[in-house]
Design a binder for these strands. Structure first.
Lengths: 176, 176
DNA sequence: TTGTTCTTGAAACGAATGTTTCAAGAATAG
DNA sequence: CTATTCTTGAAACATTCGTTTCAAGAACAA
């Protein structure tokens, strides 16, 4: 995982990876079956840890939780993870068969994480998921920008603007 | 360009490309210098055409313009372009040196396109750019989602929510 | 113990990679 | 015309790739 996060997927090769982790290509293939399966497994594990690290973020208001999430996302040590993530995203879109589970989980898991509390508060599933989409896709877009430009001031200002408007987008409750 | 859009960057190889366009690897290298330079040039050209195709979108209100842009982005024939774009993005983040210009233009050009009209209307450059960041990053995030899930209903609903709140994020005018 | 499965290193395989070499032909200049 | 440059095909080059083969050794079951 560490090697993948650091070196990425572009041009990833078994032999250097094996050497770096003190193994041989033979062993990697023995346990993972193929290079691609190995990548898929590593991505799944990284994803799971990522989700766990954000699931614990709690705050008084929803916007405040988002703010904290953004703070964690845009912290320096998160960037390699997101670089790997966006890299995997590009490959996954090109090879949906191989990365099917990555593509599913990369949206669906987070949507559920965000939408579920709203559903429990009485919002319809549909509107909760639409709102969760705004949140998830917004943060992803900001992160893509930040990884590209490292223009923290501008992106942070944008996130502030966006956060300020988030409450107005909160879904209506179901009519009781 | 057509070949790149269709086949992507992952595992791109000179020989199949050359055959598909009725040339030889030798010729491609003769004119582009290297495979990587070729990719960079093609991406630049694609980007320019993309920008031109969105620059003409005009409507009465800003939100309406955004809605039309989203409509064009999420049209079926746009998807291959965005797949290529996200793929390039992943590689560019991993190799900033080679793709430096791609990374710059991919944010900055669009920011200017969005922010400039606002500046001309008397908004400060800073707030215009923050707002433009919300717009650009939001649309990118939505597009990444849509390319992944093709869940048009959910994403469209989210875009609607987001568009409805956009006006509230518009930057204040400079004090006269 | 014996027999079996699990794990691994070394080496080889075949294929494909980007790029270069070389030489011939086309185009252009003077 | 001649001389020079531009363009191109065929082939070779040197790597590198993921993966397989084979055989030896470790672990374990009985």
């Amino acid at each position: 995982m560490r090697y993948l996060v650091r070196h990425g997927l572009t041009g990833l090769s078994l032999r250097p990876l094996a050497k770096a982790v003190g193994a041989s290509p033979r062993v990697l293939l023995y346990y993972f079956g193929s290079k691609e399966k190995m990548v898929v497994e590593v991505l799944a594990e990284v994803r799971q840890r990522q989700r766990a690290s954000y699931a614990g973020v709690k705050a008084a208001s929803f916007a405040e939780e988002c703010r904290r999430v953004w703070k964690q996302m845009s912290a320096d040590d998160s960037e390699p993870l997101f670089r790997l993530f966006f890299e995997a995203y590009g490959m996954a879109l090109r090879r949906p068969g191989v990365y099917k589970e990555f593509l599913r989980a990369t949206i669906e898991d987070w949507l559920q994480l965000i939408a579920e509390p709203l559903c429990r508060k009485g919002h319809t599933r549909r509107s909760a998921r639409a709102f969760a989409t705004v949140v998830l896709d917004g943060l992803r877009g900001f992160m893509l920008d930040y990884c590209t430009t490292h223009d923290r001031k501008r992106v942070d200002r944008a996130v502030d603007l966006w956060l300020g408007a988030l409450d107005a987008m909160r879904p209506e409750r179901k009519e009781a």
